[in-house]
Design a protein around this nucleic acid. Structure first.
Length: 423
RNA sequence: GCGGCUAUGGCGAAGUGGUUAACGCACCAGAUUGUGGCUCUGGCAUUCGUGGGUUCGAUUCCCACUAGUCGCCCCA
């Protein structure tokens, strides 16, 4: 074996690719209905963008970035997530000046993180995500969540759990942060190393720790929800009200903390509850990021979005035993016998294709029997057999594979005949 | 970054310190001089992830590496 695919990446072979196309099509169609428009940004950006946008205390920035220097000495990074780049483009192209606000965008493409691969985790993976920039209406939070749920439901997923939380605004977070430090500080030595490090860096993450999950201080820890100021609480309540109005079931989990620094107010996650799903159950994560646009150098602009991984979506479909309605099989396989017929078959196949018929022929110099077998393997609806006899009579033998019925069709009307029977 | 398990033909999968590496599926050919899906017959791994080591001899034992997989951390 001379070459192999880089670690944590995968080839999407034709059979799988058909599923990808189907999912992409559903996602695009729903974006059309929700009026989100596609934006395509580069696969790499200046490293500085992610340091700023994602936050330099995050794991992503600290240990997961594919960073390299180009020949001009610039530090570039393969994008580890989509939001920073979309916001960069929003600012750079002055989209805050667009007449239609909020600006509603979606993107779909590969992201890169240098991590150890595992079930549902890759070094290159594809995210579909949306961003709504310029609105502070809790209804847009609900819309974004609804769009994510709609995508999953349209594909047939049932075993989903939507969890939401509010991280509050800057003021609320500050007071909650202090309350957490006061709560854990006296007994922090009873916690794991990670938690001890988190105490001052990001005490909220202690609540997320799985090792110390059962420590009594965890149960009694101050909840962010108790520290939301008036404005933040009202906002969160409205988001919930709208979700109810949309008939979307959810659970409030005050311990839900999103990994990226830029989140505030609404945070949410959609998980799969399917049996036998791997350890990583998060299908989609998102939230509000009101400070980010300014951080990237634009005017103060609120924003909310989510990102979901197509790989995990496929895994969820698999876990729920859902097969997508992928059409397979060609319309007509032209079987040729003899030199003259072979030459003729090339023209016939071309003519069929010209008229929109999916057609194939043999290129392996197979015998009739083997050509039929090949047609069968390709799930051809029809087979058209052309030999010496047919050429003599100016006809072609059209056989319906499922019924075995066969009829002679004059060569000059063959293509239109096929178009007819295939309707 | 850390830990467990794994690595045999296109795929699935048995197996042994000793010289022919089971079997199933798929594929190819023939039985069937021009007709698929069924049946029968035959063919299909100079080789057991890569590199070292132990040994008279290793696919089988040991080590390293690479990759996969599951989990931790974290996340999509």
């Amino acid at each position: 074996m001379s070459f192999q695919i880089p670690r944590g990446t995968q080839d999407i072979l034709p059979e799988q690719a058909a599923k990808w196309q189907y999912i992409e099509q559903i996602a695009r169609e729903l974006c059309r209905r929700y009026n989100y428009q596609e934006i395509r940004t580069p696969i790499f950006e200046h490293t500085e963008l992610f340091l700023r946008g994602v936050g330099d205390t995050t794991d992503i920035v600290q240990k997961e970035m594919y960073t390299f220097e180009d020949r001009g000495g610039r530090s570039l990074t393969l994008r580890p997530e989509g939001t920073a780049a979309v916001v960069r483009s929003f600012v750079e192209n002055k989209m805050y000046g667009y007449p239609n606000q909020p600006v509603k965008l979606y993107y779909m493409g590969p992201m890169f993180r240098y991590e150890r691969p595992q079930a549902g985790r890759f070094r290159q993976f594809v995210q579909f995500g949306v961003e709504a920039l310029g609105s502070n209406d809790p209804a847009i939070d609900a819309e974004v969540i609804a769009l994510a749920m709609d995508i999953y439901r349209s594909l047939g997923l049932k075993k989903l759990k939507l969890v939401i939380n509010s991280l509050g605004d800057v003021e609320s977070r500050k007071s909650h942060r202090q309350a957490l430090i006061d709560h854990f500080q006296p007994r922090i030595h009873e916690f794991c190393d990670d938690c001890q490090a988190r105490l001052h860096k990001n005490p909220m993450r202690i609540l997320d720790c799985k090792k110390d999950r059962d420590h009594e201080l965890m149960r009694t820890a101050p909840s962010i929800l108790d520290y939301l100021n008036e404005q933040s609480r009202t906002y969160f309540e409205k988001v919930q009200m709208y979700l109810q109005k949309l008939g979307i079931a959810f659970e409030v989990d005050p311990r839900l903390v999103r990994g990226l620094d830029y989140y505030n107010h609404t945070a949410f996650e959609i998980m799969s509850e399917a049996e036998g799903f791997g350890a990583i159950t998060t299908l989609c994560g998102g939230g509000r990021y009101n400070g980010l646009v300014q951080e990237i150098g634009g005017p103060e602009t609120p924003g909310i979005g989510f990102a979901l991984s197509i790989e995990r979506l496929l895994a969820a479909l698999e876990a729920e035993g859902i097969s997508l309605p992928i059409s397979e099989g060609i319309d007509c396989y032209v079987v040729a016998l003899g030199e003259q017929a072979k030459e003729e078959a090339v023209a016939l196949v071309a003519a069929l294709r010209q008229e929109g018929v999916a057609a194939e022929k043999d290129y392996q110099d197979r015998k009739v029997k083997a050509q039929l077998k090949a047609a069968d393997r390709l799930h051809a609806t029809y087979v058209a057999i052309l030999g010496e006899d047919e050429l003599q009579k100016g006809v072609i033998n059209v056989k319906h594979m499922a019924t075995g019925e066969q009829q002679e069709v004059p060569l000059d009307i063959f293509v239109s005949h096929m178009k007819n029977v295939l309707k």
